[in-house]
């Protein structure tokens, strides 16, 4: 089991140093995790509504936002509750997958 640096969410600078390349046994893990976000952020992270698209967003930005939602540093209506359901490793993985998608 690899260890992931403990992220102190408010410390944005520290987050830039997080580059865990978590890979499960399933090569499509990032894609499958991202599919849990599609109901509000769109299929493959391309939103057709007013909530933001995630496709093509920098990985570090997505990780930072998720960690800020998790810690409460970033106020939210829903995401502060959902972000707490994902492990730090899963956040890295899903952010990396979205970053690699084409923005439309």
């Amino acid at each position: 089991m690899r260890t992931i640096p403990i992220v102190l969410a408010a410390t944005v600078a520290a987050l830039g140093a997080v580059h865990a390349t978590a890979q499960g046994s399933d090569p499509n893990l990032g894609r499958s995790l991202a599919a849990t976000c599609a109901t509000c952020h769109g299929t493959n992270g391309v939103s057709v509504g007013e909530v933001e698209s995630l496709a093509g967003k920098p990985k570090d930005e997505i990780v930072r936002k998720m960690q800020d939602f998790k810690s409460g540093a970033k106020p939210a209506t829903v995401m502060h509750q959902l972000a707490k359901g994902y492990s730090d490793e899963q956040i890295q993985l899903v952010a990396g997958w979205f970053a690699a998608q084409k923005a439309k």
Partner: peptide
């Protein structure tokens, strides 16, 4: 292939 051993579900 084997299915994903760590599936996640959300509800909103």
């Amino acid at each position: 292939q084997a299915p994903n051993p760590t599936p996640v579900l959300t509800n909103t």
